[in-house]
């Protein structure tokens, strides 16, 4: 559905209300500008998946499952494993989600999560896919499926935490006689960089960490920055409107600080 006149007017009113609160140095739910809502990550919640985690940031809840398969490698990379991230916005997660094929927002969430992990842990200096070659014409594929269960703002960072939790809990199944033996494992994934995303919304001149659903609706732009434990930037994605050079650099500093904080919930 498009925006009705009522939606547009309500948007302006909400933004005005939020800005009045920001002027006092506060946010609607009492947080400071650089505070996350309460966070929890629980690993190994799905017994049928080789890895899984449920992450919560405030009232947002996201489940990620990790599954392995033995597949035919890509023609141009015959010795390399496959890493793939998908995302489903379950219709039960929000009144704004509808059943149907992935839309631009769920595709973006999957691809942003993918890029953060891929940059640091798949194409970095110690790839988690290093031992994914099984035999001539067979490699391991690692699939992450992001299931958004409850959307109350900042899905990106909840997905990043849940995806890392799922990778950390993942057990690589044994490969024997052309098949995966899912009851036996040869060990976990050799993670090193622990990429974690921090999303920052710009509303007027304010930069706010972990935007709530309301803040996200009125944000002029949002910037997701994935940082690693090793002090590097692994990915970025700006959405919506403009940011200045200095705002981007300020957001980078915040992301490094917050990334260290968030990583404690998975390590």
């Amino acid at each position: 559905m498009g925006e009705s006149a009522k939606d547009v007017v309500m948007h302006d009113i909400k933004k005005g209300v939020l800005l009045d609160i920001f002027k006092k140095g506060e946010r609607m739910d009492g947080r400071g500008f650089e505070d996350y809502r309460p966070i929890s990550v629980k690993k190994g919640v799905i017994a049928t998946a080789e890895g899984s985690a449920l992450a919560k940031i405030g009232k947002t809840q996201i489940l990620v499952g990790a599954k392995f398969d033995a597949v035919t490698p890509f023609a141009d990379r015959p010795n390399e494993g496959v890493f793939s991230v998908n995302c489903e916005f379950l219709p039960l997660a929000s009144p704004t989600f509808e059943p149907g094929p992935p839309n631009e927002n769920s595709i973006q969430l999957a691809r942003v999560t993918d890029r953060g992990i891929r940059s640091a842990e798949v194409e970095g200096d110690s790839p988690i896919t290093a031992n994914f070659f099984l035999e001539e014409g067979k490699v391991l594929a690692l699939y992450l499926d992001i299931y958004v269960l409850d959307h109350s703002g900042n899905m990106t960072d909840a997905a990043s935490l849940a995806a890392m939790g799922a990778l950390m809990s993942a057990k690589i199944p044994k490969y024997s006689e052309g098949k995966l033996v899912r009851t036996e494992s040869i060990g976990g994934l050799p993670l090193k960089h622990f990429p974690i995303s921090t999303t920052i919304a710009k509303i007027d001149k304010y930069l706010l960490v972990d935007p709530s659903k309301e803040e996200n609706l009125v944000a002029d732009s949002t910037l997701t920055i994935t940082t690693t434990q090793t002090g590097l930037l692994a990915s970025m994605q700006k959405t919506k409107g403009a940011m200045s050079r200095d705002e981007v650099l300020q957001a980078v500093d915040i992301a490094f600080k917050k990334g260290d904080e968030l990583r404690k919930y998975i390590l």
Partner: peptide, 10 residues
């Protein structure tokens, strides 16, 4: 103004 910003790699 920075209107598109994406990044990957370290």
């Amino acid at each position: 103004d920075i209107l598109l910003l994406q990044m990957d790699g370290l």
